[in-house]
């Protein structure tokens, strides 16, 4: 649910990075944080365990610039990917405007990716959203590893609607900005379409 304030002339939208545990959602946010000018970002908040696994969420506010005199802000969230944090994932999806699904490209993680995509679909449904209508960008992360699944196979299992997808190596920033840009554009276009 975006927030449009005609007094302060600001639009704020919520983007959630979803995906299985250790797929690189937090790494995406860290890269964005480390490569964004200081006047365009707020504090990166991480609610993580002592071993740096996401416990509840990471949060990064970004101010992208202005459209028609309105400041455009995106609030980026990650969910905890581990299976047993199901309740937290559902809470964080509340009021979402756009989703980045970060998949782990390693062959042995395909089942975890598919399980997470099913979990996303179900959680969206429970919030009254339809995965086919929400702005969604798929990111195939960790493409630099030797044991990655072919892109055709990843698309067949995770992208049956043939949506936008990007290859990424989030640790080095490859594909991170492209993914964010794509989902942010979709969110803004969706906002326009909804009027």
């Amino acid at each position: 649910m975006s927030f449009i304030n005609f007094t302060t002339r600001e639009i704020s939208c919520k983007i959630v990075y979803y995906g299985p545990g250790l797929s690189g959602k937090t790494t995406n946010l860290h890269w964005i944080y480390n490569h964004t000018e200081s006047d365009r970002k707020g504090k990166l908040i991480s609610l993580a365990t002592e071993t740096e696994r996401t416990l509840f969420f990471d949060f990064l506010p970004l101010a992208l610039g202005k459209i028609e005199g309105f400041g455009v802000r995106f609030h980026l969230y990650t969910v905890p990917g581990q299976v047993f944090y199901a309740a937290s994932r559902k809470l964080i999806l509340k009021g979402v405007d756009g989703i980045v699904f970060t998949a782990d490209s390693q062959i042995e993680r395909m089942e975890a990716n598919m399980e997470s995509m099913d979990d996303l679909r179900q959680n969206l449904e429970e919030h009254g959203y339809d995965i086919r209508n929400i702005p969604l960008t798929i990111q195939y992360n960790k493409r630099d590893l030797p044991n990655v699944a072919p892109l055709e196979e990843m698309n067949r299992h995770l992208n049956p609607m043939n949506g936008e997808w990007f290859e990424a190596v989030a640790f080095y920033g490859t594909g991170v900005y492209e993914t964010l840009k794509d989902v942010a554009k979709k969110v803004l276009k969706d906002l326009r379409k909804a009027r």
């Binding site: 975006s2 007094t7 969706d190």
Partner: peptide, 15 residues
């Protein structure tokens, strides 16, 4: 999705 936007104008914001 965005049809659920919270829209705020001057009058409410001031109140």
């Amino acid at each position: 999705m965005s049809s659920f936007s919270l829209v705020m104008h001057d009058a409410e914001f001031e109140r």
